[in-house]
Each structure stands twice: as structure tokens, then as C-alpha cells.
Design a protein around this nucleic acid. Structure first.
Length: 887
DNA sequence: CGATTCTGCAA
DNA sequence: TATTGCAGAATCG
């Protein structure tokens, strides 16, 4: 049987709007409701494979119901502007996809849907109605199904109602549901109903008497008596309410099947529209080539593939005259060619070919990278350098402009900064993405298996976009006052990070292997004991299986649930320690398995065979605050808190004849808080080198400084951390395992004693709200759209972010400056010692034994002098023969 | 097989 | 329902 889908347009749009955070595309259009609408629509269409579809919208003018009852929908508030502007957009999208839109003056969408549903049923169609509104349940029959999406934690689920399900859930059949509504009324539509009758009573009455009219006939028998009296008195109002609640099924609209037939939803126009609206995940539904050749200023006819050495020579000659050029190195693990662009018109891809050898190209790269009379625009220089890492390429960092870094500074919260996004965001150009050019799922496909024509386009699109983006980005950095940050911090840091990656850190792989074996032994023992106590074997690593064992089989009290089942997280287990001996075993098992899989085995797999060193990647464009992140492996989360974990650090060792010199900023974030807030007490404390947590404890707990207990001190430490993270009473209460009220008292006490901190944090939030972003000491921005959210949780999150970003971000700025200074100093003095790790507030140097004292001095002085604050910056320095020893 | 969830490690 | 990250294992679709 053919299926038709009828959609209640405004109702679905509304649900989507309130269910999703506000999204904005590059033009500033709000798109969340449209996006949510389409997601639900496609989900249903995928499921139902409907042949026909109609979307019905209300028209904004009075309907026949207003004629019956002036106050109908009188309590409705207008749509917020952010939603109103999306109505024409969804209509445009539907029109473009060829979906039939029905609107009918004088009637509501419900009536159109009711009518079409009836006609569809007559024609023998299977009808599905998609709406967020339960009023439509009255239309359910055996072939008319009402589908109501529900936003749940795990995504959207859809409730389905044929007559049977309506009866099961509401105890009345769909037609009787109208009478129920007539009795109980509907505040949202301002349908009055009968006073004193709510859902319970209404259902009870209609279940017994089938209709309002029949109940009235038998009014003496109707119970409870109060409801009967009211029904008697307000009978006319009840009938009016019933009429208002009745969806018309005989409007003057036709079911035009031809217009409603779904055909080519995913056509080129729709594609372009989605791309404009930035619906990236929806784009994967399209399966065709888009013609981008109608772009005025970026035409792929001007993309050239150069395989002739004379042509190459001419290009090189032309480049000599340029002030700005862009270059992209093409390849995955080895170089395939380069792409160049030096004017608005043309771009070139120069593959390694018969006439142009790899040496020719490498040689040219070297020449280009070492010159200092032009700006070289590159996207992600550090990654580009990795492609030629063993070719002896040298470079002069000051000639480069990295569009990847510049785009990151403009908005550090993005996940990717691909050329097509840059084109859209900064140049208002629509260009094909990498996936479109080279096919999707290319993760395992090698670049050198790709057709050369596609590679030319891929290379030239990128290089032209980067060339064009340079000017826009550069002036944006200027207007947003981030030039210093970009040219003096981020760009020079590329060289530092590149060298750190190349150097890596040496691993004692035998010791690591042994450590892993030691863990394995104990893990096996623990496994056995746990299975004994549980009475069966199961996968302890599976939260699902573990939850079933603990909370079902062993019947331990359940404390917390996740959206998919029981929580078995550590803080939950801790509350069960006394209840069962298995808990401590599981805790130890978890600890050891973590150490074994992530650290022992994980690190082992990352050791480079050639030099027995680990070369982690330090990423500069990941974090929203300006910190650096580390991957493959993450060397910024090596255990330290517990002894067994800390021992891993013994396998990180210096080269023969070298030692580690490790330096970290002491409490840099709290010192920044003191500086930024200019709080006298905090500043004095740091100037006098006081114990800050003890001070806070004495303040918050009204205890003389000398009498602070260690528990008070550690609680105060948590409060200090909380302040830096953008405190909330709930969060602190969770951390300290105290009530929200107690946490609230701590926080209030804190703000009483450090009033400048309170003012500073409030001002920070206010400024961020006004400007839409938070800033660090060096003008690094973080956009915080959540601050404008109507959702309390979202907005609160935005406020915490606004408080935390300037502190965490300024700390990031400072250590970046220190890294550059230390790096330059080591170079300048021609030392053998090298910076090899950064862990947010810590720098690790592999220092030649003859240079240890010198390196210590350099670290202290350069880190201290990275920036001048109102408080001193204290540095702790340690020397050792392993990372473990530098504590 | 890729994406998502849970868990836990660091500053 | 505390900030920023990354990763392994299980599980989902």
C-alpha cells in the first residue's frame, strides 16, 4: 500500500526550535529549527519510504474558530524572532525539494491535515501524520497513524498512535478524545472546557458516557457530583469547547497526489541551499556531482597541472616578483607534488613527474622557505613540514602566514578549519569539499591512487583559497587586535612545537614491557577473585554487564543512572565500599586495566622503532581556550597522583649523557586570578609567599590561619579550583561530597572575603555578554554563543566558560611565550639541550649534563619574565634521570 | 565498520 | 549540575 506523510509544519518547527541550541550560519541566519525539522522529516521518510508527502502550515489570520470564539488561542504569545525568521527558510527548503506545501486561509494546519487524512484513507493510502501536538490524536484510525517525536536524552524517539494505541494510553477511542478535550479544555489554545474538570475526571466521564451530550442526558448519574454540577452549569461552554477542539475533516482542499509525490528531494538546488545553511551532516545524503564552475572569481578552468620543467621555470620566475604567494604540499606520507598560487586568477599543481623530479621540488621548497622577501601563505605549516621531514628542509618562520592558525584565532571553538569552510566563512565562496572532490571514506584510500585530474582540482582549490584568505584573515587579525598574538606568539610557536615533535622523548622500552607484565599478573588475580565473588564470569570492563552484576545479581543499592543504564563510575562505587567486598576489587581492577591498556600498551605502540622515542603531536588549534593539546599518544595525561601510576614516569628517560630538567609554574591560574581581579588579599598573599589554600581556608571557615586543619585546607583547595573553573554550588558539592547548601555557604563566604574576585568575575561575564566573547591578557578570543541562550543550563555553561577562559587562556598565552623564549635562548647560546615536552604549566628539557645549571637558570628566568604581573610568578625546578625523578 | 557512550587520566 | 583535553573498550546502528 502506498504511504503518504502529512506534516504539521509549525508544530514540528516549534519542537525543533526549542529542542536544539540556537545555531547560526555564516550569514547570521538562525537555522536550528530548520535543521531539526529536516532531521525529523528525513528520519521518518527513511523509515516509512513514503511515496507522498504534504507539509501543512497555519496562515496567520483568524480562522473559523475565532469566529465561534473570539478568545481562541488568545493566550498564545508570538514566536520569538529567532524562530519567525526560520519559517520562510523551511518553506524555501521544502519548495526546493519539491515537497507539497499546503496553507489554507481560514483553517488551521490541523484541519488541512484532518481533511487530507480522510481523503487519503478513502483513496486507500496508508497515512502517517507527523506532529508535536497531541490534539491530532483524534484523527487516528487503523490506517491513520499519528507520530509524535519526543526529545529524549539519547536522541529523538517517536511515539506512534493508531486507534488501538490511543485507547491503550488514554482509555478512550480517538473520536471520544475530542469530548475529553471539550471537558478538560486546553489552556494553550485557550479552550475553556468545564471548570473543575481535569484530565482524570474527563476521561472517567467519557469512558462511561461516550460523549458530552450523552453525559448531559444522564447528568443525574454522572459522578463525581461536583463535576456533574459544573457540566450542567457550563454545558454550552463544554459544547463550544468540543466544537473548537474538533478538527475539521471536510475543508475545501484537494488531495493532489501528483503534486505530493516525492521525487528528487536531493537535487542540486537543495544541495546548494543546505551548503549555504551549513547543514554538513545532511550533505552526506546527496549523491551526485555539483557543478561549481559558475563561480565568478574561482574557476577551475584556471587550474593548471605543470609537468614541463620549462613551465616550472617560468612559474618560479614569476614568483620571484611576488610579495605574497601561497603554497600547499600535496601528499599523505610522502610528497606527491606542490601547488602554488600567486595571483587572483590562476593556481598550479606541480606533481613529481618525468620532467620534474622530487629533488627539483624539494630544492625549490627549500629555496622558498628560506627567503625573507615575501609572505608565504600556508595552511597548517607544522603538518606540511612533516611531509618533508627527512628532506633537510629549513625555513624562516617569519616569512610565513599560517591560515590554519589565523582561522583558529578568529574562532577557536571550531573542530576543523578546512579550506572549504574558510572559503565560505571568510570569502563567501562556495567550493567543493575534499570529500566531494576525492570521494568519501577516503580515510584508507591513498592520495596517490586518486585520478590526477581530481588531485589538480583538490590542490588548486586549496591553494587559491588560502591565497585569497590571507588578506581577509590578516585584516581581521588587525581589527580584532590579535596581530601581536598571531605574529609574536602563535607563528613562532610553530617552530618550537615542530622541533619538539621531531625530537620526541626517549623510552626505556624494556622497563615499559616489564611494567605491563607486572600489571597483567595482578589483573589476572583480581579477575579471578571478582568472578568468584560474582559467582560467574563476565566482562568487568563493560559498564552494562558490571551494572547488571552489581545492581541486579548482588542487589546493591542503585545510586545513579546514566541514560543507558546504571552508572558504575568511581564516585558511585565509592558509596558502595561497605556494602560488598567486590567493590574494592573492581576499583583496583579498573585502576590497573587503565594503566595497562592506555599507558603500558598504549605508549608501547607509539614508540618509534628507529630512535626508541615517542613523537607525540602537539596540536595548536584544538582547544577553545588557547592551550596546546597532545595526541598519539597524549603525553599531557601521564599518571602522577597514585604511586603505581606514577611509576610509568620511570620509563621516560633522557639520552645517555643527558638529564631531565623540569620546570613548572606554581599555581599560575590562581596567580592570574589575583592579578586580573587585583584583589589585595590575594596579591599580598602571593607577594609574601603565603600558603594560598590555607589562607582561603582561614577566610572561608573563619579560622585563625595557624589553626586551619588539613581537611579545611583541602576543602579550601577545592573551592579555589572551583573559582577558576567558574564555580557552581552543585559542582562544588559534587566534588566535596557535601550538600548544595553547604557548598553555597562556602562560595558566599569566599566572595565575602575576596570581594574583588566577585566583582572581577561578574564584570567578566557582563563584558562577555556584551561582546559575545571572552578575552585573555593577550587578546585571545573565545566566542561564547551560549551566553545568549534562552536555556538556563546552556546560559550557565556560557557564564562558567566566560569566567574560566580568560584565566585558563592567559595561562596558556604565558607558557607559550615562555616556550618561545626558552627555545630561542637555547638556540642563541648554542646549547645541546632541547625543550621536548609541555604539559600546560610545565616544561621538560632534555639537558646535556654539562648544561644542567645553565638550563635551570634559563628556565627560571625566561618563565618568570614571560610576562609582568602584580604577583610574582614562582617556578619549581627539578632535575632527574627520569621524568619520575623530576618531582 | 564508523560513531557514540562510559570511564578515567592530566593540568 | 565545575574548566580544558585524549584514549581504550564496549556497544550501537
Amino acid at each position: 500500500m502506498s504511504k503518504i506523510l502529512l506534516v504539521d509544519g509549525h508544530s514540528i518547527l516549534n519542537r525543533a526550535f526549542y529542542g536544539l541550541p540556537l545555531l547560526t550560519n555564516n550569514e547570521g541566519l538562525h537555522t536550528n529549527a530548520v535543521y531539526g525539522f529536516l532531521n525529523i522529516l528525513f528520519k521518518i521518510l527513511d523509515e516509512e519510504k513514503s511515496e507522498y508527502a504534504i507539509v501543512a502550515f497555519d496562515v496567520s489570520q483568524p480562522t473559523f474558530r475565532h469566529e465561534m470564539f473570539e478568545e481562541y488561542k488568545g493566550t498564545r504569545k508570538g514566536m520569538p524572532d529567532e524562530l519567525r525568521e526560520q519559517v520562510p527558510i523551511i518553506k524555501e527548503v521544502l519548495k526546493t525539494m519539491g515537497v507539497n506545501i499546503l496553507e489554507c486561509p481560514g483553517f488551521e494546519a490541523d484541519d488541512i491535515i484532518g481533511t487530507i487524512a480522510a481523503k487519503g484513507e478513502e483513496k486507500g493510502l496508508e497515512v502517517s501524520i507527523l506532529s508535536g501536538d497531541r490534539d491530532l490524536l483524534q484523527l487516528a484510525t487503523d490506517v491513520v497513524k499519528i507520530r509524535i517525536p519526543k526529545t529524549k536524552k539519547g536522541g529523538t524517539e517517536i511515539e506512534n498512535y493508531n486507534s488501538e494505541e490511543v485507547l491503550a494510553k488514554y482509555e478512550v477511542n480517538p473520536k471520544e478524545y475530542i469530548d475529553v478535550k471539550g471537558l478538560m479544555g486546553d489552556p494553550s489554545d485557550n479552550i475553556p472546557g468545564v471548570p473543575g474538570i481535569g484530565e482524570k475526571t474527563a476521561v472517567k466521564i467519557i469512558k462511561e458516557y461516550k460523549s458530552i451530550e450523552n453525559a448531559y442526558e444522564n447528568i443525574d448519574k454522572v459522578k463525581p457530583a461536583r463535576a456533574a454540577n459544573n457540566l450542567k452549569e457550563f454545558y454550552d461552554q463544554a459544547l463550544l469547547s468540543k466544537k473548537l477542539a474538533t478538527i475539521k475533516v471536510d475543508c475545501d482542499v484537494d488531495l493532489d497526489l501528483e503534486c505530493s509525490k516525492l521525487s528528487n528531494l536531493f537535487n542540486e538546488e537543495t544541495y546548494k541551499l543546505f551548503k549555504r545553511l551549513e547543514f554538513k551532516t545532511l550533505l552526506t545524503r546527496f549523491n551526485f556531482e555539483v557543478d561549481y564552475n559558475n563561480l565568478k572569481d574561482l574557476n577551475k578552468d584556471n587550474f593548471n597541472c605543470i609537468k614541463n620543467s620549462d613551465d616550472f621555470k617560468n612559474i618560479k620566475k614569476a614568483i620571484c616578483e611576488q610579495e605574497v604567494i601561497s603554497i600547499t604540499l600535496i601528499g599523505q606520507d610522502s610528497l606527491l607534488g606542490i601547488s602554488l598560487c600567486y595571483g587572483e586568477e590562476s593556481a598550479y599543481y606541480i606533481p613529481i613527474s618525468l620532467d620534474i623530479s622530487e629533488d627539483d621540488i624539494i630544492c625549490y621548497i627549500n629555496e622558498l622557505f628560506l627567503q625573507d622577501n615575501k609572505k608565504i601563505v600556508v595552511h597548517n605549516l607544522k603538518k606540511q613540514l612533516q611531509l618533508v621531514k627527512n628532506k633537510g628542509i629549513q625555513f624562516n618562520i617569519h616569512s610565513f602566514f599560517d591560515t590554519h592558525l589565523a582561522a583558529y584565532l578568529c574562532n577557536p571553538s571550531k573542530e576543523t578549519y578546512n579550506y572549504d569552510e574558510l572559503a565560505n566563512e571568510f570569502l563567501s565562496l562556495l567550493v567543493p569539499s575534499e570529500e566531494e572532490l576525492l570521494g568519501k571514506g577516503r580515510t584508507k584510500k591513498l592520495l596517490n591512487t586518486i585520478l590526477e585530474d581530481d588531485l589538480v582540482n583538490f590542490a588548486c582549490y586549496q591553494t587559491s583559497i588560502f591565497y585569497k584568505a590571507y588578506e581577509v584573515l590578516n585584516s581581521k587579525l588587525e581589527t580584532e587586535k590579535m596581530k601581536e598574538l598571531f605574529y609574536n606568539i602563535e607563528m613562532p610557536l610553530v617552530e618550537v612545537l615542530y622541533e619538539m615533535e621531531q625530537l620526541g622523548i626517549k623510552i626505556d622500552s624494556n622497563a615499559l614491557k616489564e611494567y605491563g607484565n607486572r600489571l597483567l599478573e595482578r589483573i589476572t588475580e583480581l579477575e579471578e577473585e571478582i568472578f568468584n565473588l560474582a559467582g560467574e564470569t563476565f566482562n568487568i570492563n563493560s559498564p552494562k554487564q558490571l551494572g547488571e552484576i552489581l545492581f541486579e545479581k548482588l542487589e546493591l543499592p542503585t545510586a545513579k543512572k546514566t541514560k543507558t543504564g546504571y552508572s558504575t563510575a568511581q564516585d558511585v562505587l565509592e558509596k558502595l565500599v561497605d556494602k560488598h567486598p567486590i567493590i574494592n576489587l573492581i576499583t583496583e581492577y579498573r585502576h590497573l586495566v587503565k594503566l595497562k591498556s592506555t599507558y603500558a600498551d598504549g605508549l608501547f605502540d607509539c614508540i618509534c622503532q628507529e630512535d626508541n622515542r615517542i613523537h607525540s603531536q602537539f596540536n595548536q588549534t584544538i582547544t577553545a581556550t588557547g592551550r596546546i593539546s597532545s595526541t598519539e599518544p597524549n603525553l599531557q595525561n601521564i599518571p602522577i597522583k597514585l604511586e603505581l601510576g606514577r611509576e610509568i614516569r620511570k620509563v621516560f628517560v633522557p639520552e645517555e649523557g643527558y638529564s631531565f630538567v623540569d620546570a613548572d609554574y606554581s599555581q599560575i591560574e590562581l596567580r592570574l586570578l589575583a592579578h586580573l581581579s587585583q584583589d589585595d588579599k590575594l596579591i599580598d598573599a602571593y607577594k609574601n609567599n603565603q600558603d594560598i589554600h590555607r589562607l582561603t581556608a582561614s577566610q572561608v571557615f573563619h579560622t585563625p590561619f595557624e589553626e586551619v586543619t588539613s581537611l579545611q585546607r583541602s576543602n579550601a583547595k577545592a573551592v579555589n579550583f572551583g573559582i577558576v573553573y567558574g564555580i557552581s554550588a552543585f559542582g562544588l558539592s559534587q566534588d566535596l561530597n557535601i550538600t548544595r547548601k553547604e557548598a553555597d555557604t562556602y562560595i558566599n563566604n569566599y566572595f565575602d572575603k575576596y570581594p574583588s574576585v566577585k566583582i572581577f568575575l561578574e564584570n567578566t561575564i557582563r563584558l562577555a555578554k556584551e561582546r559575545g566573547f571572552a578575552v585573555t591578557m593577550f587578546n585571545r578570543r573565545r566566542l561564547i554563543p551560549e551566553l545568549q541562550s534562552k536555556n538556563f543550563m546552556q546560559r550557565s555553561f556560557g557564564e562558567r566558560v566566560a569566567m574560566n577562559s580568560p584565566i585558563q587562556g592567559s595561562a596558556a598565552d604565558i607558557i607559550k611565550i615562555a616556550m618561545i623564549k626558552v627555545h630561542n635562548k637555547l638556540k642563541e647560546l648554542n646549547l645541546k639541550s632541547r625543550l621536548i615536552l609541555q604539559v600546560h604549566d610545565e616544561l621538560l628539557i632534555e639537558a646535556h649534563n654539562s648544561e644542567i645549571e645553565q638550563v635551570k637558570t634559563i628556565l627560571i628566568s625566561e618563565m618568570e619574565r614571560a610576562v609582568e604581573l602584580s604577583v610574582p610568578l614562582d617556578i619549581d625546578v627539578n632535575v632527574g634521570k627520569s621524568w619520575y625523578e623530576t618531582k
